[in-house]
Design a protein around this nucleic acid. Structure first.
Lengths: 191, 191, 191, 191
DNA sequence: GATGAATGAGGCTTCATTCAT
DNA sequence: GATGAATGAAGCCTCATTCAT
């Protein structure tokens, strides 16, 4: 029990995720995090040098987890259309399963509290998406316009879509919303 | 803004806008705002009861200004397609002219520092957009799916588009990016 | 009363002097200083940016005051012998009148809590003493050896002398101790 | 001292000596001492009950070692003059060989971090010096004034002398400085 | 003997806000 | 209206010390 206990570190991270999304970064005292996580003040600073270090670690993790969730089964799809649809479904599914993490990502995507390096690392996990768009253009499935622009809009649209899907609790309706949203995105992109 | 201004309230608002976007809300002491605005500490609290009151006022103003900018000449357009295109151009144009205000809006769109009432008031200026989508569906120009979903994705896509257009300094290229982006959105929506 | 009140700053300095000598620098919380000085926590940091700034200011003041006290009437004396004796009496007199300041000087003379620059400034007030020794050597009153060495030993001896004189409360005995001590120093220096 | 040492207690003491003189007592966390000494945090507290206990032990040791060094060959000298000169040379020699220990002694001579009892014990090793002065007075070699006053000034002067000798690296010059300084002291004391 | 994760009191400092002038 | 000295609650973080392993 006195060996490095991943439990405490995990408890701190999980608590911080919730509190940061609920109350914002500056609105969440480290003392509250440690109290809610059931550890002592000092313990938080044993695992994370500073409060910034804590949110940075959290940001990297969440971004990385989100990226991984989006990739599931992506290589099984052949066409760009299918890949994008699978991607969109993965993203929507993950976002709906992990609304706190999603909200955290959106809230801190432009936050000055997250270090530049963490922002960059977070971004890096999603670069493959741009290649995906590029490939679709090359083989004629997707409209031949600036791929980074397409990608950027697609990402924004997807995020809006998930946010909207989260407004309902009915799985069937969600399914429909997501389907319609992915149609929107695909019609916007296809050649 | 950094010179002794005849209108101290405006100086405070302008300075706060810049500093909040550059350093975040909690990262910006009111003392810094008053110093940069060239007024005394107490003066800020004469015009704004609290720091929250200041950001709230700012938020309402910026949202309202953005909404007004988007409406320019909207009633001159007849079809939903033309209305949406005009709208998109207005939005992109305003965002590019006022990047600080745009960044401020995005950064504080989900911020707990802005009061719920300010958020609601901000949102209210954009409700007419949903009607616009609804009308388009009614007359067959726009795909017949849940209008609020369409609107939500459209807004997100537009925001991503502007952010992307801001990355370049070349007006011609911007024009092209915006054109492509508006195409994306229209193809995603049209019947 | 809301105009810059030298009273509060002075109260803080006086309280800090006492507490630092009684309890050491690190042993004295800033909260204790402000409480004893009758001001709020924040007031201390309004007048002194940091705790280090406070001790630095104190150090500069005390050193400067001590130096000034030692110079009193020095130019009225003609010979090096008389000058040194007057100097020694001044020093002893000041030290006995201001034991807290003296203790403070000794305690923080080598302290890493006082900045190098404050140490240097403090030292600078006493450089004239070395010239005094140098003059004495030149006119043959003082032994012709390295003046900075002589000065250094003289200063140490003087400090030990005052510390010893402070052990008694009887003014007459003090007078004798100081007289004997100054003899010691003079016999050690004279040609 | 910085390699894994067979004797951890000694490693801790040696490291603490250096760090305390370099950074002060309060400026040196026990965690830093144990890290630099190459032991675990807990190990320090196995050998020393508290941080105060550590500095106390160190103080007693250093004072005792210094006293012992000063006594070397003292009984071989016959006259008070010779005894004092030998004493001075011993002290200067030791101080120059052990500048860290000397600095430590001076820095903590009045420190509230060192317990009263350690201060007293440290002082006790030097009491024989006062007897030495007393004997010199009795047999007419030394001026007949209060012996404790003489002793006190002598000690201070000696300390200043060593500090001054440490400023140069040239052994020959040091020799001269020490010689001159011991002359100063002797002339100040002799009958 | 030795380790180092865990503790929590307490330190320094910031900063929104007030109010006498 | 405007000022800025003054306030004190509250935040982040350090660090001496413990104790299960």
């Amino acid at each position: 029990m006195r060996e490095p206990s991943p439990d405490k570190q995990e408890a701190i991270l999980a608590t911080a995720l919730t509190l940061f999304t609920e109350r914002g970064f500056a609105g969440t005292p480290t003392s509250l995090i440690s109290k809610e996580a059931g550890v002592a003040t000092g313990t938080l600073f044993f695992y994370f040098r500073t409060k910034e270090d804590l949110i940075d670690t959290l940001y990297r993790r969440v971004k990385s987890e989100a990226a991984q969730a989006m990739c599931q089964g992506l290589d099984k799809e052949k066409t760009a259309k299918d890949k994008l649809r699978r991607l969109g479904k993965n993203a929507a599914g993950w976002g709906i399963q992990n609304p706190a993490k999603l909200k955290f990502m959106e809230q801190f995507a432009y936050s000055p509290f997250v270090s530049t390096s963490a922002h960059e690392e977070g971004m890096s996990h999603f670069l493959f998406l741009e290649d995906l768009v590029r490939d679709g253009i090359r083989n004629g499935e997707i409209r031949d316009v600036d791929p980074s622009g397409l990608f950027c809009i697609m990402a924004s649209a997807l995020s809006g879509l998930i946010a909207h899907a989260l407004l309902t609790d009915d799985p069937a309706e969600r399914e429909k919303i997501i389907g319609n949203g992915l149609d929107f995105i695909w019609f916007g992109m296809k050649a």
